[in-house]
Amino acid sequence: MATVTLKGNPINTSGSLPKVGDKAPDFTLTATDLSSKSLKDFAGSRVVLNIFPSVDTGTCAQSVRQFNTEASELENTKVLCISRDLPFAQDRFCGAEGLNNVVNLSDFKTGKFGENYGVNFVDGPLEGLLSRSVVVINENGEVLYTEQVAETVDEPNYKAALEVLY
């Protein structure tokens, strides 16, 4: 279990992020076209998991925008934006913003992604949503970098996350 804060108030997650050097846990999530996607679908690519509570909040929306911009400059890299939002909301947001360099995936069906990556909030006002985190995975499925943002309303450290890919 990890403890982060929401506007200074402590909230807990269901576990801990995978460790650098570990094999990234596989997952099955729902894409905006309602198809199922797994980590295996991105095999051979470097993958950035941008994990957040809801695209309908300012900080989460900004992380999708920022990673969309950054992703267009990286070779062989896919940015997966993962939340418990419905795929329809994810698709609406990216369509309205003109964002097409990220892949939106939803953990709304089972919540197993949040369990396997240790990012489900287990208490507090965001209980049931995902903790703001970044996991970077190499072409072989190994974790290169992780960050669980200590204060939920803060943005992740984009530079540190993407530095491991240069």
Rank of each mutant, 00 (worst) to 15 (best):
M1T: 12
A2C: 05
T3P: 04
T3E: 12
T5W: 01
L6I: 09
S14I: 08
S14V: 09
S16V: 14
L17Y: 11
L17I: 14
P18Q: 06
D26F: 08
F27V: 14
T28E: 15
L29K: 08
A31T: 13
T32Q: 07
D33H: 12
L34C: 00
S35H: 08
S36E: 15
S36D: 15
S38H: 10
S38L: 05
L39D: 04
K40I: 11
A43S: 15
A43R: 13
G44T: 04
V47H: 13
V47L: 08
L49I: 07
L49Q: 14
L49W: 09
N50G: 00
I51K: 09
I51A: 01
I51R: 04
F52R: 02
F52H: 08
F52I: 02
P53S: 10
V55E: 06
G58M: 13
T59H: 01
T59P: 00
C60M: 03
V64S: 00
R65F: 11
R65G: 01
Q66D: 09
Q66F: 08
F67D: 07
N68I: 09
N68F: 10
T69F: 08
E70N: 10
E70M: 04
A71E: 11
L74N: 06
N76E: 07
K78L: 03
K78N: 09
V79P: 06
S83N: 08
S83C: 05
D85M: 05
D91E: 13
D91M: 09
F93L: 05
F93M: 10
A96F: 14
E97N: 07
L99H: 14
N100C: 04
N100E: 12
N101G: 03
V102I: 09
N104V: 01
S106M: 10
F108I: 12
F108L: 10
K109A: 12
K109I: 15
T110C: 05
T110N: 06
T110P: 00
K112F: 08
G114K: 00
G114I: 01
G118T: 14
G118S: 08
G118I: 12
V119A: 01
V122Q: 02
D123E: 10
G124L: 04
P125L: 04
P125K: 13
L126N: 13
E127L: 02
G128N: 07
G128D: 13
L129G: 07
L130I: 14
V135R: 10
V136Y: 11
I137G: 06
E139W: 03
N140A: 15
G141K: 10
G141N: 12
V143H: 09
Y145L: 01
T146L: 06
Q148V: 11
Q148I: 15
E151F: 02
E151I: 00
E151T: 03
E151C: 03
E151K: 02
E155P: 05
E155N: 11
P156R: 01
P156S: 01
Y158E: 01
A160I: 01
A160L: 03
A161G: 09
L162N: 11
V164W: 07
Y166D: 13
